[in-house]
């Protein structure tokens, strides 16, 4: 599976960046409500992230779903690990778990404790 060029590019993007959001559209111009929500959550946390517009490349759009065995976009990866889609990001964000995860992984973000 890894020799498939699309899977290789996906794996490399995920490995090269602490936080990667595969989304529809870009950070400035999300093209779908779920992707926009994911961007908003990451912006609220003040976390720098790499946005990958799957609409630019159909190979990545389908490839990412096989990579994580997850059927929808957006998809969030932190330090190489698949965290979840929009639902899970929202649930974790509301429970403070996303912030804790980012802290635990030592990823710089807007610190606003207290």
């Amino acid at each position: 599976m890894a020799e498939d060029p699309v899977q290789a590019t996906i794996a490399k993007t995920i490995a090269d960046n602490d936080v990667v959001l595969f989304m529809k559209g870009t950070r400035q111009f999300p093209q779908c409500g779920f992707s926009a929500t994911a961007v908003k959550i990451l912006d609220h946390l003040g976390v720098p992230f790499k946005d990958v517009n799957v609409l630019d490349d159909m190979g990545v759009r389908d490839g990412i779903k096989n990579y994580s065995n997850w059927p929808t976009i957006p998809q969030l990866y932190v330090k190489g690990e698949f965290v979840g889609g929009c639902d899970i990001m929202r649930e974790m964000y509301q429970a403070g778990e996303l912030h804790d995860l980012i802290c635990e992984k030592g990823i710089p973000h807007a610190h606003h404790h207290g």
Binding site: K65, N69, W70, P71, T72, G84, D87, E91
Partner: peptide, 25 residues
């Protein structure tokens, strides 16, 4: 959580992301 959601998506027989594109789970 991810595994739990994947279990539900499997139960939905791969329709998630297809005919069923917006299921907030």
């Amino acid at each position: 959580r991810v595994q739990q959601h994947q279990m539900v998506y499997d139960a939905l027989g791969g329709r998630m992301g297809g005919v069923l594109h917006a299921l907030q789970l």
